[in-house]
Structure formats: C-alpha cells, structure tokens
Design a protein around this nucleic acid. Structure first.
Lengths: 137, 137
DNA sequence: TTTTAATTCTACCTTTAAGTAGTAATTAAA
DNA sequence: TTTAATTACTACTTAAAGGTAGAATTAAAA
C-alpha cells in the first residue's frame, strides 16, 4: 500500500524546488545530491515533468530546471496523475470489476472514508502548502 | 496507491470461505472458478495461507480447504501481514528514511489522518465483518 | 489394489517497475 | 572557435510482481 517510487521522487523534487524561492535554476546534479535520488533516474523523471509542463528546462551550460507554474497551482494529485498513481474514484481496494452501488466489494463501505480523505489530501495539497515542511531525505 | 494482487486475492478467498458457513470444504477448482482467480496462482496463495495457519488443508481425493480459525478472529490486517502489505507505523508516504517527529516528510502531517483510518479499518475488520458483504468478482 | 481427484513442490516464464549507460544536442564561457 | 557543462534521447539491465507448467504426493472411492 504505497505510492510508486517515481511519484515519491517527483513530489520531493518539486517540493524542493518550490521551497528554494531564492534560487532560480536547479541542476540535475544538485537535485540528485540534495535529494539522494540516482542521477540518471532523476533526469528521466525531470524529462517527464518538463513534458507535463510543470517544469521548464534551460539546456546547455549554466542551464537547469525551474518551476513553470506557481507553486500554489500545482497540486500533489496533479503530480500523481502524470505517473498514473492517483486514487481513481472507481478504483476498488479489492480489485473487483465494478465496485459501486450495484455490485460492491466486501470492503467497499469501510474503504469509502479513508479513500475520500486521501483523495482530498492529494487534491488540496499544493506545492506551496508542502514546500519547506519536511526533511529532504 | 493500491494493495498488491496477491493481498486482494487472499482477502477475497478468505471472505468467500467465511461467507459459506454451510459448506465445510472448498476445492481450489471451486475457489478459482467462483472468484475468477487463475487456478495455479490461487493454489500458490492457498499454500501460503495454510503455512500462515489461517487455512487447514485436507489432501487427497475429496480434500480441500477450510478455515482454521473463527472468522471473527482473522482481521484483514493479519492477511495483509502475510504478504508484507499492511501499513506500517513508520512507513512514510514519500519514502524518506525516518519519517517521524524529528525528521518528517513534507506530507507527514496530512498523511497522518488517512493513514490511521486505514490502519484502523484493516485492524478492526474481521472476516466475519466483511463476509457476505460484497460481490465475488 | 488401482484409479482418480485433490493438494504440494519445484522450477520456470512474462510483465512491469526501477535503475543504468552511453551518446547526442545545446549553449555559455573561456 | 573550442571547451565544458548542461539537458534530451535511446537503449539496455536488474529486480520484483504476477502468473504458469508439470510432476510428486496423498487419500478416498471404485
């Protein structure tokens, strides 16, 4: 019962960048070192964040990465969505075909409340909310 | 953000068995058919459930499986524990080293409430509670 | 005693997530 | 204009989850 590694890394990367408002550009090397994320894996994730338009990249010498949107406009759930890791409404905790009013799984009712809480947490927490709130590694 | 397939299958298998009190023995073939779980994968899971002492197996012709404990004594969390899939107290949603009072991750505080709810749901739901509450597949 | 229907065991195969390697492209500084 | 520092791209490797195959074992029924 966990987020996948890629999602975890992506959230930590973006939160780190959002946290350091004094800096304008972050290199992959810095992010990799500061956040203890394997360099090559990090650059792979950065490319996806660029494609998803959350991050702008400056190529070439003295280049780097920076946020493309305001930190308050990026929700944790938006990040999870890039990696297909957010909690879908129709998702069933026991993995049965259709889990809803007509045919629900054995844990459907108990799962409802924690599921909604988690969805709210992801949908309402922006990078601004979580930046600087925690340790890096 | 989901339970692994094996955990889902195991919960559904045990809930099914707990639900049919009129029957005393369940063959792998029946369970596989009724729950739409691949036969060979199911037997693998059954073996683990037997080793974990939740299920008793009767070998040979006319054999099968049955619950070894009372349904009220088996919690969903006990099942998840077999497959290392329960939510540990120290588990961090962003996967950082030690996520506690001293050094917590950026989502630590928001994660607290849904995490405790889920832990309670798993720890307090017994097979008896969930048996017969849902569709099979 | 043989057959048959069942579980168990060992080993393998497939798919996906996670991570690595090497090189090309880009750009500012020297 | 060359060099160094940077991101981007393509392809590969490794590890884990998910799933399959086949033979061995067991024990009731015929």
């Amino acid at each position: 019962m966990k987020l996948n590694n890629t999602s975890q890394y992506a959230i930590r990367i973006l939160a780190y960048i959002a946290d350091h408002k004094e800096k304008t550009l972050f290199s992959a090397t810095e992010l990799s070192n500061e956040l203890s994320i394997p360099y090559k894996f990090l650059t792979k994730i950065m490319t996806e964040l660029v494609k998803a338009d959350f991050i702008e990249s400056i190529r070439g010498r003295e280049g780097g990465f920076k946020l493309k949107k305001d930190a308050s406009e990026i929700k944790v759930d938006d990040i999870l969505n890039i990696f297909n890791d957010s909690i879908k409404d129709e998702e069933c905790i026991l993995g049965i075909g259709f889990c809803n009013g007509m045919c629900k799984c054995a844990l459907h009712d108990q799962w409802m409340e924690p599921k909604l809480l988690m969805q709210r947490m992801f949908r309402e927490s922006s990078l601004r909310d979580i930046a600087g709130k925690g340790c890096k590694i």
